[in-house]
Structures are given as C-alpha cells and as structure tokens.
C-alpha cells in the first residue's frame, strides 16, 4: 500500500488550496456583479461552475480508490 503522502494527502491539498482559489473566484465575480444571479443564463453558469469542481473531485477520488483497491 503506498504511503498517505502518495494517496490522499495530494488529494486533500489539491482540493483544499484549489477550493480556496475557486471560492475566492466565485466570491469576487458575485460581489463585482460580473455574474448576475437574477439572469437565468448566469444562474446556469454558476451551477456549471460548481458542478465542474465536484466533477473533478469525484474523478480523482474514484481513480485513487480504483488504484488502491481494484
């Protein structure tokens, strides 16, 4: 079994720091009104952005689990 430093630590670091940058981006575009959540199209874009973050996180988690246990 590979060490924690090769399995879940990079995952936690990636989505911890990556999540910080991502959240900061969402906060700035919301505060600056560059994304206007009153508009239907912009609400859809926000959903896509959040989906994308979860999508990559799930792919990486599945790949780590597959590598270790399959």
């Amino acid at each position: 079994m590979p060490p924690f430093s090769h399995t879940w630590l990079p995952f936690i670091y990636l989505y911890g720091f990556g999540g910080l940058f991502f959240s900061l981006g969402l906060y700035i575009i919301y505060k600056s009104k560059s994304i206007n959540l009153k508009r239907k199209a912009h609400r859809r874009w926000l959903k896509i952005l959040v989906f994308g973050f979860a999508y990559f996180m799930i792919i990486h988690a599945i790949l780590i689990i597959a590598a270790l246990y399959w």
């Binding site: 999540g19 991502f22 969402l26």
Partner: peptide
C-alpha cells in the same frame, strides 16, 4: 497516471476567467 495532473487541475481559476 499522475502524468494526467497537468490536464486535471485547471478548473479552480474558471470563475476568474469566465466572468473576469
């Protein structure tokens, strides 16, 4: 498979790019 890292870490800055 960690060679894929470069292609799978671009999402974090998408809000900045798309709406900035």
């Amino acid at each position: 498979l960690s060679s894929t890292m470069t292609y799978m870490n671009d999402w974090f800055f998408m809000p900045f790019f798309l709406f900035g």
